[in-house]
């Protein structure tokens, strides 16, 4: 699976793309990422699976791309 980070979230993860072993759902993915990157827990973001924004825990498939998108405010 591929995990993408945007904006200031890259300050936390230090990488904009992470190849990640298969995880069953988005909530489990969040939990393991929070263990590795504690500051992610307090960051604001929305998630998308394969380019579609999700609002609830979502079942993942092998090969899915999961994006973490924060708000941007500059202009």
């Amino acid at each position: 699976m591929m995990v993408l980070f945007f904006g200031n979230l890259v300050d936390i993860t230090q990488q904009s793309e992470l190849a990640w072993p298969f995880i069953h759902n988005t909530m489990q993915l969040q939990q393991v990422l929070y263990e590795q990157y504690p500051a992610l827990q307090t960051a604001q973001y929305v998630m998308a699976v394969n380019g579609k924004m999700i609002q609830t825990n979502t079942i993942l498939q092998e090969g899915d791309t999961i994006a973490f998108m924060p708000p941007f405010s500059g202009g």
């Binding site: 604001q44 708000p71 405010s73």
Partner: peptide, 25 residues
Amino acid sequence: DLFPEPPHSDAILSCEEAGVLGVLP
């Protein structure tokens, strides 16, 4: 629909704080 509530303004850096490449905006 994307971000129902604003973040605290100190949670996200402005261009003044974070910098911005001139051509990007």
